[in-house]
């Protein structure tokens, strides 16, 4: 998995990024870079990070995600983590990871609903 394979889809003023199942550290860093560039290019107001295929959420990955959320916020966007698997959520909690105030949704659909409602309601970050 290299940075080129990461898909970033821009829909209206939102970005949809799908995280690969078992990314190495390099891919995770490349993902962050690509998200921030796309945020700027599309003047996006929100980011949906689809993590429904992610098998392992360790502390390095979690930290990078949290950093990305903060960077996206600084660029005026809100992030929703969508579709975390049940086993990954149990493990991440037991490992002691926390994602702070980052929003979550059961799937991409609900994440879009959430972001669109918020952006239309004028509640941006």
């Amino acid at each position: 998995m290299t940075a080129e394979n990461i898909s970033v889809i821009s829909l209206r003023n939102l970005l949809l990024v799908t995280v690969p199942p078992d990314p190495d550290d390099e891919t995770i860093s490349a993902l962050q870079q690509k998200i921030l560039e796309s945020m700027a290019r599309h003047d996006a107001r929100g980011l949906v990070l689809d993590i429904s295929t992610v098998q392992t959420l360790d502390s390095f990955f979690a930290r990078t995600v949290m950093e990305t959320v903060q960077m996206v916020a600084l660029m005026g966007g809100r992030t929703v983590l969508a579709g975390m698997r049940a086993d990954v959520a149990v493990t991440a909690t037991q490992l002691g990871l926390s994602i702070g105030a980052t929003q979550t949704a059961l799937d991409v659909d609900r994440a879009f609903d959430l972001l669109q409602g918020e952006i239309q309601g004028g509640r941006t970050a």
């Binding site: 975390m84 990954v88 991440a92 909690t93 037991q94 979550t104 609900r110």
Partner: peptide
């Protein structure tokens, strides 16, 4: 509390 935060990670 752990269970509750794990549920939150799921988006519920």
């Amino acid at each position: 509390i752990e269970a509750i935060s794990a549920v939150k990670l799921l988006g519920s």
